[in-house]
Amino acid sequence: MAGQDLLHTQPRPMHWLATATALSAVVAGASFVQPPDATATTARSTAAGRHSAAPDPGKVTFPVTCGPNRPEVVKRASGDLDADGTTETVAVVRCHSDTGTPPSGVYVLARPTDPQAAPRIVATLVAPAQQLSVRSLAVENGVISAALLGYSDLNVPRCCPDVHKSVKWQWRDGKFIQSELPAAASTTGV
C-alpha cells in the first residue's frame, strides 16, 4: 500500500469549484454584516455630505398628553431641512380618537449622536395647545409646508373647522421661520 495513490486526497475540478463557491458565499455574506458604527469613507460620500436615514418617529416619546388614549403619528415627511447633509423628519402627532379631530403637534426630529438612542425633538412647529389640526404635510427642497385647520372661537363645533390656512417653515439664522402662504389663507364662516 505504500506506493498506492490515495484517490480521496487528489483534488479534482469539482472539489475546486465547491471550494470556490463556498468561499464566495462567505465573502458575500461578510459584506452584509458590519458593525453598527461602520461608515463609508470614500471621497465621493464625503463630498456628497452626510446623508442619513430619516429619524423614525415611532421611537420618540412626544410631549403630547392623551389621558387614556395613546399618541399616534398620523403624518410624516423627511428631508434635509437645515442644509447640513443629514436628513430630518417632520412628524404630525395627535391623540388617538375614534371620533372627532384632536389637535395636532408638529415636531422636527433629528438623529441622535448616539446611534442606540431615540431620535431627538429639535423643534416644535405646532403645539397641541394651539388647537390646530394638520390636513397635509410636505417637505421639499428644505421647506416644510402644511395645511392647517382651526376654529375661530369656542362655539364652533370641533367636527367642523372654520379656519383654513397654509403655512411654511424654513430654516434661517439657526431657527425655523414660519410664514403664511397668502393664496390659501382664508377664514370662512359656516
Rank of each mutant, 00 (worst) to 15 (best):
D5A: 12
L7F: 10
L7E: 14
T9F: 09
Q10F: 14
R12L: 11
M14V: 13
A18W: 05
T19Q: 12
A20M: 09
A20R: 07
A22K: 01
A25N: 04
A25E: 05
A28P: 06
S31C: 08
F32C: 03
T41Y: 08
T42S: 15
T42Q: 10
T42A: 13
A43H: 12
T46Q: 15
G49W: 07
R50M: 11
R50G: 11
R50A: 13
S52H: 05
A53E: 09
P55H: 00
D56V: 02
D56C: 03
G58A: 10
K59H: 09
V60Q: 00
P71T: 04
E72Q: 09
K75E: 14
A77H: 08
G79M: 03
D80T: 03
G85C: 00
E88Q: 01
A91Y: 00
R94Q: 11
R94Y: 04
R94C: 11
T99M: 05
T101M: 06
V106P: 02
R111V: 00
R111K: 04
R111H: 05
D114K: 02
P115W: 00
Q116Y: 03
A118W: 01
P119C: 03
I121M: 01
T124I: 04
V126H: 08
P128N: 10
P128Y: 07
P128G: 13
Q130E: 15
Q131S: 13
S133E: 12
V134R: 02
S136C: 11
V139A: 08
G142A: 06
I144P: 04
I144W: 04
S145R: 10
A146Q: 07
L149W: 08
L149V: 10
G150Q: 06
P157V: 06
R158I: 03
C159S: 14
P161K: 06
V163D: 15
Q170T: 13
D173T: 00
D173W: 04
G174N: 08
I177R: 12
Q178A: 08
L181S: 13
P182F: 03
A183K: 09
A184S: 15
T187E: 11
V190K: 08
